[in-house]
């Protein structure tokens, strides 16, 4: 874990320094994005959770853009969450229910140029922290088992955004709130990969805590990843 933490900190520092260097005093647009997407995970271990191997997520993202210097790079902070509480993936004809939740907190860079007035093709690269929660429920014994893992995740994707101003033409007051807003939608496809999640300390959730209880080695979800697809809508606000 400590090795993973070091790599993560170094990556974080490089993104932060890049963002500050490039925007400087001229930073003038902040964007808020809400969206969703999916990651295909086809390693056999994931068959325990879903037949389709497609893991949907919802995401929120905050980005920052400089229009003066190095405007092609826009750094962003991205939070994604996947897993639907309350719906367990049933295996063994309902004999065993397993659910996998994931939260990802990532920093990244959206690299692209404006083509024409409204279209911005871009490549997005990012990485960060992955939290996973495995919950196992055995209906016949009414027993719950839970474990959390902490890993790294990274992605790369290509696609584009359509950005349109809220008011076309020249606004009467260029500094009014409405005139500062631009709206947009984006779609990207790529690949997301994560390090191995080891579930070797699965905890039974017993009511009685006087008994010494052993943890369960439930196996691991191996390192690797799958195809990524993201869409989102956003507003960009000129500062």
């Amino acid at each position: 874990m400590s090795m993973k933490m070091k790599v993560f900190c170094a990556a974080l520092m490089s993104v932060v320094s890049m963002a500050t260097m490039e925007t400087g005093a001229y930073a003038d647009e902040i964007s808020f994005k809400a969206g969703g997407g999916s990651q295909m995970l086809k390693q056999p271990s994931y068959d325990a959770f879903a037949r389709e191997n497609k893991y949907a997520h919802v995401a929120v993202e905050v980005g920052y853009a400089s229009r003066q210097r190095l405007s092609i790079i826009e750094p962003f902070l991205l939070v994604q969450t996947s897993g639907d509480p309350g719906t367990y993936a049933q295996t063994f004809n309902g004999g065993l229910e397993q659910d996998l939740y994931a939260q990802r907190v990532m920093l990244g860079a959206d690299i692209g140029v404006m083509v024409g007035r409204f279209f911005r093709p871009s490549v997005r690269l990012g990485g960060g922290y992955l939290h996973r929660k495995l919950e196992v429920y055995v209906p016949s014994s009414s027993q719950h088992y839970v474990e959390h893992t902490h890993d790294f995740v990274g992605f790369g994707e290509a696609g584009g955004s359509v950005i349109i101003p809220l008011f076309f033409g020249t606004p009467a007051n260029p500094d009014s709130f409405g005139a500062r807003l631009r709206l947009g939608a984006s779609a990207h496809m790529g690949y997301m990969a994560q390090t191995t999640s080891t579930f070797d300390e699965l905890e039974p959730q017993l009511d009685d805590e006087t008994w010494p209880v052993e943890q369960v080695d439930y196996g691991e979800l191996p390192a690797g990843g799958g195809r990524l697809f993201n869409v989102g809508v956003f507003v960009r606000f000129r500062l």
């Binding site: 390693q43 068959d47 325990a48 088992y145 008994w211 080695d217 439930y218 691991e220």
Partner: peptide
């Protein structure tokens, strides 16, 4: 008594995630 005991659950599910990998 609980002081002289050990509880181990889900022994049959050990390694379940990787069981059908191969």
């Amino acid at each position: 008594t609980p002081e002289n005991a050990q509880v181990h659950q889900a022994i049959f599910l050990e390694g379940a995630l990787n069981f059908f990998d191969k």
